[in-house]
Write a protein that binds this DNA or RNA. Structure first.
Length: 271
DNA sequence: AGCGGAACCTGTCGGC
DNA sequence: TGCCGACAGGTTCCGC
């Protein structure tokens, strides 16, 4: 499900629904979701107050104390849902936090790729430590970007999925961003000109900002904290549109396979 | 170091 | 109807 716009939507909604709430207890229904030893996790989360919620890359970070954070990653199908505490258990509920109010915070994940980890050293968590620029980082300039990728031979589409370069882009928005910047997804990263990179960066920002405005893209699994859908799926121009027509030139959108993921693009507009 | 492919786990959909 | 393979908003690990 989740790329930056989806994760940021969830974080925004968690901020209003669970900040300052106390965690009374935790039920771990699927142990593989929790990275820490379960006993230790339950003990250290119990009786903590959620002081803040933030997004770092595609990670959701709950601040529980000065030196204690609960870090979650939704991977493909993870969701955070807030419901009344009397709600019955639902299929794929994996971790349930009983809150001090009438609510519970549920981590639901059909595929069980998602992870929740308690840490005392947030910025040295392996996943977080390696993250590249946030899309809106002032240091993400065409010059810096070019320098960072000038020895990378992989296709630009594949490079956009590399969280150690820019963090937050996933498979849907990579295709949309490349269409918006009129770049061919198969182009080797190292041959891009400064001008093309400049376009790529502004498209990245505008596509992600727009997707965030519509609360993300709900094609199949992704849901908001209140289980509503995002609506950016109504504005996708190429992702999932193979055999449909390009909105600019009306030639056929094509689907190809790059490093085991689908890519959609217009071979005519994206040279 | 960088790259491609397998692995993690579960559900759905299309073809035969 | 039923089975089987392909595929799914992600990341990590392994071998070359």
């Amino acid at each position: 499900m989740p790329e930056l716009p989806e994760v940021q939507t969830v974080v925004n909604e968690l901020k209003t629904s669970v900040t300052f709430q106390w965690i009374k207890s935790v039920d771990v229904l699927r142990e593989s979701i929790v990275v820490n030893r379960i006993k230790e996790f339950r003990k250290n989360v119990r009786s903590r107050q959620i002081k803040a919620v933030q997004r770092i890359g595609k990670y959701i970070v709950f601040t529980l104390d000065d030196k204690l954070w609960m870090v979650a990653h939704l991977k493909m199908t993870g969701k955070f849902i807030v419901k009344n505490k009397n709600t019955t258990r639902h299929a794929h509920d994996r971790v349930v936090f009983q809150l001090g109010t009438n609510n519970k915070l549920i981590f639901n994940d059909s595929r069980c790729f998602g992870r929740i980890e308690l840490t005392t050293d947030l910025h040295n968590l392996p996943g977080i430590k390696k993250l590249g620029w946030d899309p809106w980082d002032d240091n993400l300039t065409p010059e810096n970007f070019k320098r960072k990728i000038e020895h990378r031979k992989i296709p630009i589409k594949t490079l956009l999925l590399d969280q150690t370069i820019i963090s937050g882009i996933g498979n849907i928005y990579a295709s949309e961003i490349l269409f918006d910047s009129m770049l061919n997804p198969t182009t080797s990263a190292q041959v891009l000109t400064k001008k093309q990179i400049s376009r790529l960066i502004s498209s990245t920002r505008s596509i992600l900002r727009s997707a965030l405005k519509y609360n993300g893209t709900s094609i199949s699994d992704y849901r908001r904290v209140d289980e509503k859908k995002g609506s950016f799926q109504n504005f996708l121009k190429v992702y999932g549109k193979s055999e449909r027509l390009c909105p600019i030139c009306e030639s056929n959108i094509v689907k190809i396979r790059q490093s085991q993921r689908s890519t959609f693009y217009c071979p005519n507009c994206q040279q």
